[in-house]
Every structure is written in C-alpha cells, then in structure tokens.
Amino acid sequence: MSGFLGRLRAGLARSTQKLTAGIGAALTRRKLDDAALAELEDALISADLGPAVAADVVANLRRTRFGRDVTEPEIRAALADIITPILAPVAKPLEPEPANRPHVVLMVGVNGTGKTTTIGKLAQLWRAEGKTVLMAAADTFRAAAVEQLQVWGQRTGCEVVAGAAGADPAGLAYAALERARNENADLLLIDTAGRLHNKTALMEELAKIVRVIRKLDPEAPHDIVLVLDATTGQNAIAQVEIFRAMVNVTGLIVTKLDGSARGGIVVALAKKFGLPVHAVGVGEQADDLRPFDPAAFAADLVDAPEHREA
C-alpha cells in the first residue's frame, strides 16, 4: 500500500505545488481571520473545487477554527479532514461480479478524456487476475480509434471486436456481447466514441447502445463508467448530469491526475452526485491506474503532512 501511496503522492505532489504556495502565503503571518479565510477560499477555487464548494469548505473551517492562531500544517490537516469525509463515501473500486459472466463495462465520456487508455489499463488489471477480457471497439467514428484499441489488445493479450469504420456502434456492441457470451468471457469492455454531452443526437446514439445491449442481457451494462479528465473545470458537473440522465452512469474514473491539474472538481462532484469514484489514472502506461483513496486524495489536494487511514 505504501508503494501505491508513494507513487500517487509523487504524482499528486506536483499538482499541489501551487495550492500549497497559496495556503502557505495565507497563513505564515497571522491567525485565522477573515482575510486568511478568503485567501484559503481562493486557493481552493484555484484547485477547481468551484466557488460554491470552496465557500462551503471554508465555512466549515470558520466554525471550528476561526480566530485561533494556527500553524500551517495544522490548517492543512484541518482542510484535509473536512474534505476526506466528502470523498470517503464515493470511493468504491470497480468489482466485476463473476455471476454476470460476462460482466459488461461501458466506457463513456467527452472527447479526449482517456477512455481507450483507461480500457487498456482495466484490461491489464483484470488479465493479471487471470480473467478473460474481451474488448469492443465501438468508437467507429474517430480516425484510428479502432487501431488504438487493437494495440491495447495486443499489449494486454485480449481479443478486440471491431467493425468497419462508420459501423453502427450499437450493433457492434450487440455482436461483441454475443461473442463474449459464446466464449464465456469474464468481462466485456466496450469503448465508445467521445461525445460532447450537449450533442443530442450523439447522446441518443449512446442510449441506443445501452438499449440494444439490454436485448441480450437486461442487466447489462453492469457498469457504465464516465471517464473524466482531471483538468476539466466546472463543466464536469454538466457532463456528469447529462451523461447520467441519458445512460445512468454508475461511476467515474478520473484520468490525468499526474499533471498539474489537481482535480478538485471531484470534491464538487462527490458532494453533488455521490457517484462512486472507481479509480484514478496517473500515467500513460498499462499499470498507471490506481484505486481512489479519499484520505490520500484530500491530503494531497491541500498537501497535508500526514493523513489518517479512512
């Protein structure tokens, strides 16, 4: 576990540098007064928590610590303690149910968030556990999307179901599920084309994929995972809202957390939707997928010195 935290922290440490500087500047000189709280609020806004959630977190801090003389590590720990309980309820790993066989996972999201890469990582993870994984390249729209998934298939030793460019993604997903059943695969991972949530026709297409899959298995897809880019700002809220309304998203995977973006939007999403966060992506390699650890995430978000196990 320390290995995981170490690597995650190494990645996240970079992303918290600026926030840390902000908090440091806010607190080296004085006690926790209105001005200091305002600066803390700004620091949290800069971490993409959004104005409303940042105000909430700071209001919470005000209730317990206002007017006290506080050290910098103290205030960071306090912030982490406020944020961790918001995140704790949503930390749920993606666990395929063997009885489903094949357990169907549908990956959705806007363009460029890392759906295909994440599928590759999940395939790697489950292959390592000895499961048989089938992938379906239902992104029939974007140039070379199929080939991209096929490379992941080779890397992870998984078969990829693919159709002609421009083929109907729902039909392809149906065929893939049929094949996964025939071959008695443990898992079917369906990659879909990136789509902006405000494009009605494309969202309808996604709903159709789900509808068609359900003709074969009314329970499928067992997981509908929205892949979210950590650099996304407040628009993530609209993304989750609409994707959930259209296809009943069951959980999130947050990617690109190894960059300078801190992914504070996850806190806002947890508060508003309470959707499970299954994992975080911290690199381009097959094993760069980590479980979502709320305490570590919160601590790293505000660079708290220690964090307690949740």
């Binding site: 600026k18 806004i45 800069s46 971490a47 993409d48 806007v110 460029g112 880019d229 650099t231 996304t232 700002g233 407040q234 628009n235 993530a236 993304q239 960059g259 300078s260 973006a261 801190r262 504070g264 939007i265």
Partner: peptide, 11 residues
Amino acid sequence: DAMTGQDAVNT
C-alpha cells in the same frame, strides 16, 4: 480544451 479548468493557466 475549452472545458479546461483553472489549470489552463499552469499549462
């Protein structure tokens, strides 16, 4: 990306 949050500035 137009959806980028505060990090756009760092990038």
